[in-house]
Simulated scan of single mutants.
Amino acid sequence: MQTTLMIYDGTAPADSDVPRTGGVPLAPAGFAWPMCGSCCGGPLQFFAHLPVEGGVLSVFVCQNDPGACEFWDAPSGANRVYLFPREELRPVAVPETGVTLLPTTSAIRHHVVTLDPEGDDGLTPDAYDVARSGWKSEPGERFGKQREVLRSIGGSPSYLEKDRVPICPSCTGPMEFAAHLEEGITRQTAMNLGGQLGYVFLCRACREGAFLTD
């Protein structure tokens, strides 16, 4: 059993078409910056650019008044996930007001961790939890190394109850899990997730996405 972690890999150009947190979103022509539909009505903050099979996931979360708008709830309107085609993406104009960008653009590299299919008690372990611990214990251990894990791609959602899996608003089917999100390695690079783990889901057929935290 393998899990693909995404590891902090220094800084990246703000408009690069690589896996990253922060920077500016890349989108097709005509895309309008998303606004919070929960309570504040302000522009959402751009969190992550995640190339996946079939396109690019672009994740936005409201940070104008943290705790006021329910950014942790998928249907709240305080977050947005888009699945864009990879072709003809261009930097999006950033609104002049509101909390829109992270302070730093962080590059991400993929790191595959191979797991034992069963734990010592014979039960199937949580793949993401075990993979993060595996990364920490690999050669080169250093203080704070586990915080270098910014997310994982694919697999299954860690400890998320089945009744919280989002339903696609277009086809009403359950969405596919796409990625975990961690807050970040430092205060300067962090995404504010309220100290929780973030989950990104998508419906490939309808090109819809969803975000929530635990």
Score class of each variant (00 low, 15 high):
141 E>T: 12
110 H>T: 08
211 F>H: 00
214 D>R: 04
180 H>P: 12
3 T>F: 00
80 R>E: 15
46 F>R: 01
142 R>A: 14
102 L>W: 00
144 G>C: 01
118 E>Q: 14
124 T>P: 05
35 M>A: 15
76 S>A: 06
188 Q>A: 15
23 G>Q: 06
5 L>S: 00
11 T>L: 04
187 R>Y: 08
86 R>T: 15
160 L>T: 10
133 S>Y: 09
90 R>A: 15
67 G>W: 00
74 A>G: 03
44 L>E: 05
197 L>F: 02
27 A>S: 11
9 D>R: 09
34 P>G: 10
128 Y>Q: 07
131 A>Q: 01
38 S>W: 08
100 T>R: 08
26 L>S: 12
18 V>Q: 10
192 N>Q: 07
125 P>Y: 04
124 T>S: 13
152 S>V: 09
201 F>S: 08
23 G>H: 05
64 N>T: 14
108 I>D: 00
70 E>P: 01
123 L>R: 07
131 A>D: 05
8 Y>G: 06
134 G>Y: 00
127 A>T: 06
162 K>M: 13
190 A>N: 05
174 P>E: 08
125 P>K: 03
182 E>D: 07
45 Q>S: 14
144 G>V: 00
198 G>V: 08
54 G>W: 04
144 G>H: 01
59 V>E: 09
46 F>S: 02
175 M>Q: 14
142 R>N: 01
40 C>E: 09
137 S>W: 03
203 C>Y: 11
78 A>Q: 12
76 S>P: 11
75 P>S: 04
156 S>M: 00
121 D>T: 09
206 C>A: 02
139 P>W: 04
85 P>L: 01
176 E>A: 11
